[in-house]
Amino acid sequence: MLEISQLVKRYGHDDPVLKGLDLCVEGNSVVSIVGASGAGKSTLLRCINRLIEPTSGSIRLNGQELSSLKGAPLRQARRRIGMVFQGFNLIDRLTVMENVLAGRLGYVGFFQAWRRRFPPEDIERAFHLMERVGIAQYANKRADELSGGERQRVGVVRALMQEPDILLADEPTASLDPVTSEQIMKLMRALASELSLPVLINIHNVAQARAYTERIVGLRHGRMIFDGTPERFDAAALEEIYGGIEAPDETAVPSVAEGGR
């Protein structure tokens, strides 16, 4: 269970990016976070695994407070949080297998990591997951030889190798073509229920959010302004979240005109 309360992130003296956010994710629900660019979606996810330092507020995962961790305890907490990235963030010059096994780096010692001597159960798990998503035949290929959809599958498997308690996905389909991006969304939803994992997905594509997730959270200017099921996510909610933001130059134009588009 992930509980976020009063989360604030401020860069320097600018207006905060996140303004006191409260969010609670339970069980194995798939939650999508929607909002315009700059609404704070990416910052929110990165505050959870502390790739970005929150300014204030509390983040608790299964009862453990994450926002105050440092050093080794922070790394131990991070290995229970899987993350899938927009740009895949694979290590291009290493093989697919090495990329996948990199998900275990929080568990193995330095020498094992250096010699690539991962425990047999890690390797078994890697093969199993790669077969599940259909990339096992590429195990010894270099990661940069794969297509976009295959690369994102590697990214997903790497995150699952961590045996995470929660999966974070930062715009996992934004760099993919429409067909592949549907496949990845389906895959993530299926894996979430198979492994009974809660999943938090930042997503730009509202139609996909409606189709593949059970709960939608809408952010605007660092505040949560919608939280509910896809059925309740109607045109009014969409207008509230995206209205007048996408083109900041047109702020002078009445918002009615924006809604008409």
């Binding site: 690539r116 047999p120 390797i123 077969e131």
Partner: peptide, 11 residues
């Protein structure tokens, strides 16, 4: 590919 033995992998 699918066998019951634990598979090994070397770089």
């Amino acid at each position: 590919m699918v066998d019951d033995k634990a598979r090994t992998w070397r770089k």
